[in-house]
Design a protein around this nucleic acid. Structure first.
Lengths: 344, 344
DNA sequence: CTGAAAGCGCTTACAG
DNA sequence: CTGAAAGCGCTTACAG
């Protein structure tokens, strides 16, 4: 059943059917009702591809979740704790505005090819990237080709940077890390360790910087011995915990994210140490499990829901208003205090 | 840059460009290379809508997550523990076969309208539904219109049932509930309560049946006093726990899912009772947090990853082979024993 | 092996 | 207010 058949049955032309379906003003109520009746009766819905070919824009937004860590599917479930609320909010915000979300996982560099295709072949009217390294060249290429993109956590280098020409949403990793570390300092801790996240991400780098700044502001010497590298996975947190405990036991640990916190906690508990009695710990992200841990984890909450809706709303705005629309958000973060730290 | 321009530059016709791009056999290597070079140079990707209009099929599959519980966004994060691994696996399986996934949330009956549109306007070549009530009339309508659909957890009434004409994937809720209850019985429990899930879902109904069967097989009288209604949310579990404790305290509880278990546990702990010392508890689903709870939750694991890839693979098969292909899977479930139960 | 042409189902100036 | 016609960018018989 296509528009021509509907037109014939309703006794009008395809043009009129189109006008009615698209809710244009210049159709008298009588004609409109006549057409609508037939449309309803035959359950007619215009062919999406035909509409697009004829010039209407796609109401589909791509969401590209970049997760290059090569680990088991178990691991994938774990990191999804970070992506999952974001994804939900993206879908929710989009659906409310009659947009649909097409999700792709980017697990290896080659997967960017599929992402590009979605833009180049016009399946999507814009795309959101989350989880990428800083300075991802593939994302840069897409922006340079003039497509609408929103990126979560990406640094801008200078005025000329390609990333000025997109919608950028960064959380205040530096500030959050500073607050987390400072909280520990205020509690009386001096020997504070930091488990670093993925240094390829701006978050990994900035959280380390925030940690250092808090220490030096408090006049505490930064000891490299207390800084251990991880990569945001639970497993890397566990290994970091092991390494730390074998070296020099701190009174507090600021982990780069919650997944690593869970790993560190496992290492600590296996060493028969208690949290927070022996070691205090604060995480980052506030993933769902954080509040169910024993003791409940003190952590820096990232408002992923809010960031997601900003991304979607701005992207829709950018693709509906033809003129180039860009934006740059910096989202403040908040420490949520639970039971994993004690004062000494 | 469209196929005609590419054709001109390469000195061939659009037909040939099309043949090359689509990798047809009847093009000599020389011509092929010449075209490919231009394609590469100009970054040409055929317009997806044009291809579809010309008859190629969409490589997009819809995933419709039905979640009608009206609660806060906090709640949404919680239920996503169940949907999230499924969603991940769906995307993963599809991406591996060059399919993309378009996700929509169905939070209210009206949202089915959007789902139907995606089928009717040919955006998707098939769709997967999860989280629906038994006998969802909207899904039935889509199947009856001849579209390819896969449904998770849906009963078939008889040979004529519309749901015979789709890909059905059910987990063995009855068996899982039977095993869970039986495990408690073997541990010596006689006063076993059940927190019922959503009775509109086949899982809610069947888990209750499995529970009853295990009791009666063991010669234990089924007491309505010990059966409390919930709706799969943590909050409903909490309320059920409160109600139960005020009535008659059981030695063990089999909760219809893990989220409700978490709620029940909260109620139990608030009453200063200990798990498993005072009350044993077993859940259902094995969501991510289950293993992090204190004590770690014994629960029935649903292999959502596996179910997701079955859904995707069968759906792709169904939409690529024109003839009608249907299937009906029943997935066995396994009890994973952790520390939330004790023998008495 | 290859090109000209039809056709996929719409929307949108254009003309009236 | 409304219809005839062009055009969106492909693919695919068809003919050679």
């Amino acid at each position: 059943m296509n528009s021509l058949e509907i037109a014939k049955i309703a006794g009008v032309s395809r043009s009129t059917v189109s006008r009615v379906v698209n809710n244009y003003g210049n159709v008298p109520k009588e004609t409109r009702d006549k057409v609508l009746e037939v449309v309803k009766k035959y359950n007619y819905v215009p062919h999406a591809s035909a509409r697009m070919l004829a010039g209407m824009k796609s109401r589909i937004i791509g969401l590209f979740i970049i997760d290059m860590k090569e680990e088991s599917s178990y691991h994938k479930m774990t990191t999804s704790s970070y992506f999952s609320p974001f994804t939900n909010a993206v879908i929710d915000t989009a659906n409310k505005q009659q947009y649909n979300i097409l999700i792709s996982l980017i697990n290896k560099p080659r997967d960017f090819k599929n992402a590009k295709e979605m833009f180049y072949n016009k399946t999507i009217s814009g795309g959101i990237f989350i989880g990428g390294n800083n300075n991802e060249p593939d994302i840069r290429e897409i922006i340079e080709e003039g497509y609408k993109v929103a990126v979560i956590e990406q640094d801008i280098n200078d005025e000329q940077d390609t990333f000025n020409k997109c919608i950028l949403i960064n959380s205040d990793s530096f500030g959050g890390a500073f607050d987390a570390t400072n909280y520990l300092i205020k509690l009386g801790h001096k020997k504070i360790s930091h488990i670093v996240g993925d240094m390829g991400h701006r978050t990994g780098f900035l959280r380390l910087e925030g940690y250092k700044k808090a220490l030096s502001d408090a006049g505490i010497i930064i000891k490299n011995n207390l800084i251990i590298k991880g990569n945001y996975t639970e497993e890397s947190g566990y290994k970091a915990g092991l390494k730390l405990l074998s070296r020099e036991i701190p009174t507090a640990i600021f982990a780069g994210n919650d997944s690593m916190s869970i790993g560190v906690i496992r290492a600590i508990q296996e060493a028969n140490l208690k949290i927070p009695d022996d070691i205090s710990i604060v995480g980052f992200d506030d993933i769902e499990v954080a509040r169910y841990l024993q003791p409940a984890l003190t952590t820096v909450k990232i408002p992923l829901f809010e960031m997601a809706s900003i991304a979607v709303n701005n992207l829709i705005k950018a693709s509906e208003e033809d003129n180039s629309f860009y934006a740059n958000y910096k989202i403040p973060l908040e420490l949520v205090i639970r039971n994993s730290c004690r004062s000494i």
